[in-house]
Design a protein around this nucleic acid. Structure first.
Lengths: 286, 286
DNA sequence: AAATATCTGTTGTTTAGTTACATTAATGAG
DNA sequence: CTCATTAATGTAACTAAACAACAGATATTT
């Protein structure tokens, strides 16, 4: 378990002084691992033994051992904690926090994913006659993105962010059609209805949503990643990013499955749009 | 650079005794990081200062510092780097690689961002009469996402992914309008033309694009992040994620700038869509 | 409000790490 | 081959960091 996350999670089990230590460490872990127990104590405005006690509470042998653990969890270069934005945060603070908590979420999502299910999802997608991506609200941009990706594969794809169109599309679906439903919570009533409708018409329903949600129960295959919901202040942020990366993963799996010959297709698509862009060499002319 | 690799590589630059230390560490690095300088010296059959000198030769401040570096390089078998997907990767491999390289990209992007510019961008956005988000191709889903975010702020927003609509919108723009142009490369000719048109009509052009690109040169304010392009196999992946996170950052900055009273708005929007969702309690009924 | 338990800081001891210096080994010129 | 010089290694003294034991302070409970 990531030490930094562990500190964050156990914040309320600490005593007042210990929490001061925790906050100093979370604020600048890179500094913490290069400090002595004395300087860290001074930074947190507590005594040295308090720092030591703090370390032991985290199941380490003492301060040096704690530093080692912390160093390992920082190895990625990024402190992987979910830090919520405060009202009085400046641009540096909230920028860093959002980037970092997004990365933390991706890390959690990565570990929560079942690669076997991903493999099956790729199976299903490669064998599909037609793939449709549905999303509502914030998830609609994820669906659009998926469309953009899979469109390049030169297979029949569609994307609807309108509930009426989604339902109509479902009614017209046949066996071999795959409908990818994207929803963070999996509780949007309309989308659950869409799932039901799709299955009634023999389509395969692949859901990118929360485990055990109503939508999940109405799907043939569910790719879920338990991204903490409360990271979002008032709107889905990191969860949506995780879904996009998952789309990337599926698209990559798709590409790999189709083999080398197929990848030439992608190259051609990229070549095809070349004329619409400025060359790098043009930069100084403009 | 990975410390363990560094030791391996510099094996021949060490003296005889120092090499003994190196070999002991390479043989069992996990033991090494949990040993004192005395025990390590005994293991390598050298004196303590020799171990210390060995550490310094590796550009560390001393033994404890060296242990930290080593611990970091040993953390998680997989270092947090850009790893490209291979043809023969299985689902576990490509899933991990995509997630990790996305995280790596976000890390790079975070460090490349100028928070002063972000602050200015937030300034501009909060003072805008109307905000329009334009993107083409893969960036269109980013623009959609931005719309979804800023729409909740109850201010005039628009989003176009159609070049004709974008141009028309530009022609109708007036002072006080902010047009956010999203493009990974900043080389899409059509979008550069849109930027020119927008500025001719007194709109403020905020570009989320590459530094020094043609589009950047035609914008009033540029938020750039040098995400490596070659991470994407044949389609933009990580760069687009970075843009989305940047949108999150701007939206958050916007919210914070508007103050507490404004944040109640967001709560109301969230409350307003509650009826369209299943409660958590409903789960077992369905 | 008193008593108990918990938390926090001060002091002193121990141990680990480092510096300075002495010794040994290695290299090279006469 | 031997002496001189340089580099390498170890010994001993020193510094500072970490920890344990204790005492004072603060909550908490009855």
């Amino acid at each position: 378990m990531n030490t930094l996350e562990l500190i964050q999670k156990n914040l309320d089990t600490f005593s007042k002084s210990e929490r001061k230590v925790a906050e100093v460490i979370i604020a600048s872990p890179q500094v913490a691992i290069h400090s002595s127990i004395a300087t860290l104590a001074k930074m947190a405005d507590v005594s040295e033994p308090t720092v030591n006690r703090f370390c032991r509470r985290l199941d380490t042998k003492g301060f040096p051992d704690f530093k080692l653990h912390l160093a390992q969890s920082l190895a990625h270069g990024t402190p992987y904690v979910n830090r919520n934005v405060n009202e009085d945060d400046g641009p540096e603070a909230y920028t860093a926090k959002i980037f970092e908590s997004t990365m933390a979420c991706l890390d959690v999502a990565k570990n929560a994913l079942d690669t076997n299910l991903i493999n099956r999802a790729v199976d299903v997608l490669t064998q599909a006659n037609k793939i449709s991506f549905f999303g509502l609200g914030a998830s609609s941009s994820v669906a659009h993105d998926a469309l953009n990706k899979f469109f390049r594969f030169n297979i029949p794809v569609a994307c609807f962010d309108d509930i009426v169109m989604q339902k109509m599309s479902c009614i017209n679906s046949t066996e071999g059609d795959v409908i990818v439903l994207i929803s963070h919570t999996g509780r949007t009533k309309a989308l659950v209805e869409v799932a039901r409708l799709a299955r009634e018409n023999d389509a395969f329903v692949l859901a990118l949503t929360a485990y055990n949600s109503p939508l999940a129960k109405h799907s043939n295959l569910v790719l879920s990643m338990s991204v903490p919901e409360d990271t979002d202040i008032y709107m889905p942020m990191a969860s949506r990013i995780a879904q996009l990366v998952l789309i990337d993963v599926l698209a990559t799996g798709f590409t790999l499955r189709r083999g080398a010959k197929f990848r030439d297709n992608l190259k051609r698509v990229k070549e095809g749009i070349k004329d619409s862009r400025f060359d790098k060499l043009d930069d100084n002319i403009i």
